[in-house]
Design a protein around this nucleic acid. Structure first.
Lengths: 119, 119
DNA sequence: CTGCTGCTTCGACATGTGTCTATCTTGACT
DNA sequence: AGTCAAGATAGACACATGTCGAAGCAGCAG
């Protein structure tokens, strides 16, 4: 597990927030891919559960919160994984997920609005 | 114009960042809708052009930056409008768009990662 | 080895989404 | 009025996406 992760164009640092400078097509494509991963209510909730746990979370503790089938949860977790937002590891019978805060922070920074200059 | 805007569930203040508390289904639905609006490369670029302009932008200045047809641009702008991310007004022959920074800020805050407590 | 449990992968299907062309609306200018 | 240009809307179509049930693949326990 934790194998197929897409290579991140902007690995760590990032481009300027969109309120500061317009994105070029390549940057826009990468940003849009990240947003797409969070554009489903179930995925966003999954992300929030994993990110707010403060620790890794077992899939078996996640599934009961949702009304959809196991395969569907698994599918959404895979999308989050491929977007670099979470990672996971199998330990014995169970699989644990944890957040990748850098990626979350990167997206947040992309959207951040600079202080209006009150001079 | 600037008529059909969806009522925003969380009008101004907002729920805690997803790294702090898990979203309930209603919050997740609203957040996901916002992310969906930004989940297309063209829309994200549109948003960045409008947000970084520092002023309103005429559609006629936007269209030439893209390789898609006018109606497609128009469609994407409508999606951004309905998501509460931009607003517009017609003045004479031209239509001008400007960003709604509160909404952008709200999304950014939703994703913000609190400082790790280094105690 | 056999069975059971947790999770993922596969294949199929209905629904959503991005794109286009054609058409309409609005306003400006003769 | 008539004409032109800028955008928006409508309708059609290909493709992407969310969902499910069935099957597959680890690990553990007898």
């Amino acid at each position: 597990m934790s194998k197929q992760q897409i290579p991140l164009l902007s690995s760590g640092g990032c481009c300027a927030p969109i309120s500061v400078a317009a994105l070029n097509p390549a940057q826009a494509a990468e940003g849009a891919a990240a947003f797409k991963a969070l554009s489903d209510p179930i995925r966003l909730r999954l992300m929030s559960i994993i990110a707010s746990a403060g620790d890794e979370v077992c899939v078996c503790d996640i599934t009961p919160h949702f009304d959809v089938s196991g395969p569907t949860i698994s599918h959404h977790l895979k999308v989050l994984r491929e977007a670099g937002l979470v990672d996971c590891e199998r330990r014995g019978t169970w699989v644990y997920y944890w957040p990748m805060p850098e990626r979350l922070q990167w997206i947040s920074a992309l959207l951040s609005v600079p202080e209006p200059v009150t001079s």
